[in-house]
């Protein structure tokens, strides 16, 4: 990595301006913002309500919408996280990336700014969707809101870093979209966002445990379940009898994010 010329202050300023550009893009594209918010809401209200009729009391966790709620929060932050990867690929194709690459700053700073931007947008959108907790029969107390927001922030940053890593590894828009489209659905299904993972065949259990989203969904599910007195701590959602602690899950998610960010920055900094 080439050294930045102006030390930490200059690098921070670069991170900030890249972050700021992401914010401006989102705020100037309200239509797209509304659409990305609409998808998780539809999941919760349409799919949730529909399946609630089919599974009246899912896995002893009450209404299916209550079960689905943490998964919907994950889907909410997933969209803007993917948006960051897409914007890196787009900047490369549109040429703007070169304007950044030739600047006298570390490429890691550029990437950090991008990821921070994506994570900020994702967390804010997550908080907006969190307001729908009532429709999922989750009473939203200030304590729950704070816990979920903090977890959303960690999960968002990790997901953003993961898509950024994917984005710097491919050079074409189509490859990126096809690759993500291929990976995302199975990852979502295996995460326990849609159905409980207990009692699955061993080969599926292994895949579930390997899926980083499993830890993210569980992180978001815990405070929700812990908050509902009538619901046991939803162990049925977790694939195995062994259940890591919240701290361990947070650590796994954060470590994944940091690793992805470092690898992406390395790859990004390599001269061609």
């Amino acid at each position: 990595m080439s050294p930045g010329p102006g030390g930490a202050r200059h690098e921070l300023r670069a991170v900030r301006v890249v972050w700021q550009r992401e914010m401006m893009h989102v705020l100037r594209n309200r239509g797209r913002l509304a659409l990305t918010l609409l998808q998780p809401v539809l999941y919760l209200l349409v799919v949730g309500t529909g399946l609630a009729a089919l599974v009246p009391d899912s896995a002893g966790a009450g209404d299916y919408r209550t079960y689905l709620f943490p998964g919907v929060l994950l889907m909410t932050v997933q969209m803007p996280a993917i948006g960051v990867g897409a914007s890196i690929v787009w900047d490369r194709e549109a040429g703007f990336l070169r304007e950044m690459l030739v600047a006298p700053v570390r490429r890691g700073s550029l990437l950090l700014g991008k990821c921070a931007g994506g994570a900020t947008v994702a967390t804010c959108q997550g908080v907006l969707v969190m307001a729908l907790a009532g429709t999922a029969h989750v009473p939203l107390s200030p304590g729950l809101a704070v816990a979920l927001t903090a977890e959303l922030a960690v999960v968002s940053l990790a997901l953003t870093a993961l898509t950024a890593m994917a984005a710097v590894s491919v050079s074409r828009q189509q490859t990126f979209q096809a690759g993500l489209g291929f990976a995302l659905m199975p990852m979502l299904f295996l995460s326990g966002a849609m159905f409980p993972l207990a009692g699955l065949p061993p080969w599926l259990t292994v895949l579930c445990l390997a899926d980083p989203l499993t830890y993210a969904v569980d992180l978001l599910r815990r405070p929700v379940a812990g908050h509902l007195a009538h619901v046991p701590a939803a162990p049925a959602a977790w694939p195995t009898a062994w259940h890591p602690s919240t701290a361990a899950e947070l650590a796994v998610t954060a470590a994944l994010g940091v690793t992805a960010l470092v690898l992406a920055a390395r790859r990004f900094a390599r001269p061609r």
Binding site: R21, A103, P104, V105
Partner: peptide, 18 residues
């Protein structure tokens, strides 16, 4: 960057170059 104004494009550059 088409989504920024002319002045914003230049300010972005000024920040990147410190």
């Amino acid at each position: 960057d088409g989504d920024l104004t002319a002045a914003e494009n230049l300010r972005f550059h000024a920040d990147l170059y410190g």
